[in-house]
């Protein structure tokens, strides 16, 4: 089947039909930068065939369990896990999902560094990745402050000096349980989810970065015809 025989979706309407409403403009822009086939792909470039590509997904899968176990801990409040074996188990799930979240995220970061994955206008993808790492560290840290045990007590004492010295401690008091509770269960999860979502959308929009020094003469590119390449670039 050639391209001309395919039913083409009318993403670019005729000039007289162009909808100038805000919603219409937004819809056109979204469909242009992130068409459904990029958002939910059913194929990947052939070079995406190594285990090293699995760690981003591993981090997201861990995040599912971080949020899930955190939601269960929320049901009964911050002291529940000291009193109930079931609560303790969910606390353990929360701890280990966080450990694996960082485990996968750091390997993902190493992998993307060695791939120089910021090439081809993907710098913002890299930056959102680094920001999500940083925000996750703050989120994880506030979680350690909420254990309501000796560890959280000590961390609150020890961490205050760096924050006070940099002027942040006056507004972000790590020894204030109530304040840290709100940051940990509301503000920081929202921040992590938003920045991770943005990161994933950027990855989907730009596609997976081609190998370093890939050239048109490479076998994985040679087999495609010029017409096809042009039509896809349009």
């Amino acid at each position: 089947m050639t391209d001309s025989q395919l039913p083409q979706p009318t993403l670019e309407p005729e000039p007289e039909d162009v909808d100038h409403s805000w919603s219409g403009r937004l819809r056109r822009w979204v469909l242009k930068v992130l068409p459904p086939e990029k958002l939910l792909p059913t194929s990947q470039p052939s070079y995406v065939a190594t285990w090293i590509y699995m760690f981003g997904m591993g981090a997201i899968a861990s995040l599912v369990f971080v949020i899930g176990s955190g939601a269960v801990l929320s049901l009964n409040g911050p002291m529940w896990w000291h009193l109930s074996p079931l609560g303790h188990f969910f606390n353990s799930l929360h701890l280990w999902s966080v450990e694996f979240f960082f485990f996968f995220m750091v390997i993902h970061l190493w992998a993307k560094f060695w791939m120089a994955a910021w090439r081809g206008n993907r710098a913002l993808t890299w930056i959102t990745g680094v920001v999500s790492f940083a925000v996750s560290i703050v989120a994880g840290f506030t979680g350690y402050l909420l254990q309501t045990n000796f560890d959280s007590q000590w961390i609150a004492y020890q961490a205050k000096d760096a924050l006070n010295a940099s002027g942040i401690g006056a507004w972000f008091n790590v020894a204030n349980f109530g304040q840290m509770f709100m940051w940990h269960i509301l503000l920081l999860p929202i921040a992590v989810l938003v920045i991770v979502a943005l990161h994933v959308l950027l990855v989907r929009g730009h596609g997976v970065v081609p190998p370093l020094d890939a050239a048109e003469s490479d076998s994985q590119l040679r087999e495609t015809t010029p017409t096809e390449a042009t039509s896809r670039e349009a």
């Binding site: 395919l6 086939e37 194929s43 065939a49 285990w51 390997i107 896809r232």
Partner: peptide
């Protein structure tokens, strides 16, 4: 290990087909 362990090739893999490329459109 992720760098050196060979990645399994799926059943449809060998074809690396125009078919799968059509999916991208």
């Amino acid at each position: 290990l992720a760098l050196v362990v060979p990645f399994p090739r799926g059943a449809r893999e060998g074809r690396e087909s125009r078919e799968s490329r059509e999916d991208m459109k």
